[in-house]
Design a protein around this nucleic acid. Structure first.
Lengths: 181, 181
DNA sequence: TGCCGTTTGTTTAGTACTGAACAAATCGAT
DNA sequence: ATCGATTTGTTCAGTACTAAACAAACGGCA
């Protein structure tokens, strides 16, 4: 990978951080590019060097996290479900600010769909309807069922300010996956 | 004041922060420019755009704080000593990392002299040997006495990890100034 | 002493960021 | 619907930062 100029990384970091901070204050639609450039301490024009508009920026922000989750999944593909969910939920907790915002009011419509799409993708790799407990089921049914359940579960976890600990979430989510995949 | 490019401020901030962090790890002499540029996430050459060498950098770092103290002094020049020392010691506490490093082992030789010189300057403005309690004293004697005492006191405070609270330090330092100036 | 690896300070061409200006689009209130 | 005020997205000339290369100075250590 042709390494990118450190200035690019720095401004992108600053911009992303600024957006997340601003979303804690107001709804995404109420945020202006000027707000972002002020908070990020970056020239307004600079933002346009990296993003088409603020929706593109939000897209990339989401994409970056999805990509991270994807990497986590790959590196833990041969682990048991419970170990994998442990890694996952730890990532959620580490980026609490982001996911909490995205999955509750403020950015929900944008993020939820993307997250679900991604999970469908991920579940598809694991499901098997030719043998085992899901023999005879329609693949689409199982995939949709499990992926939706996961989204809902994570959503509930953040919306209710982590009603159970990250450890408990991981363990129980892992057991539910084992039961259904 | 012709406002400076925000890039300059950003890199200078990063560099100063890096130096302070590095001084917590090793002695100033053991720090290389490369260390600083790494920690600050800035190109090595960039540092030379702003500073002659690392001693010049340390100089500027010190100078910036002295300048801040000078400003604090000006804005509180008509207050009672106790109120002034309150403002002072609060500044010390806000920049604990810096002063603690500078006044204990690591950077002592560089900072102590500058700090004393500055205090002499500041005390000079307040002393009066033509009337009042210091009538008949030599001005130099009083100045040196008080300034040295202040440096030593602050040094003691940091070296012993704030053995008294900032409030107590301020109040007692204020009373000692009243007694001697 | 002489050697070698490190650090220093300087230079270079190339790149990213800056601030300012601009017209167009959008928004809010009357 | 019309106005004025923001916000948007684009352009441009100027500036700061970047990485890389270089010779010179330094610092152990054999």
């Amino acid at each position: 990978m042709a390494k990118v100029d450190r200035r690019i990384l720095k401004t992108q970091e600053a911009v992303k951080k600024a957006v997340i901070e601003l979303m804690a204050e107001k709804s995404f639609d109420a945020i202006t590019i000027q707000d972002i450039s002020d908070k990020a301490n970056v020239s307004r024009g600079t933002i346009y060097l990296h993003y088409m508009d603020k929706y593109d920026l939000l897209d990339k922000l989401i994409e970056a996290h999805i990509e991270q989750l994807r990497t986590l999944c790959e590196s833990s593909s041969e682990l048991e479900f419970i170990e994998a969910t442990e890694i996952w939920s730890r990532y959620f907790e580490e980026h609490y600010a982001f996911f909490s915002l995205m999955l509750t009011s403020k950015g929900a419509p944008y993020f939820r769909t993307r997250f679900l799409d991604y999970l469908i993708d991920e579940v598809k790799k694991e499901v098997n309807v030719t043998e085992g407990k899901n023999q005879g089921f329609d693949q689409g049914v199982i995939i949709q069922f499990v992926a939706s359940a996961l989204v809902g579960l994570v959503e509930w976890w953040f919306a209710n300010n982590r009603p159970v600990s990250q450890k408990v979430l991981a363990e129980q989510m892992g057991r539910l996956l084992e039961r259904n995949l």
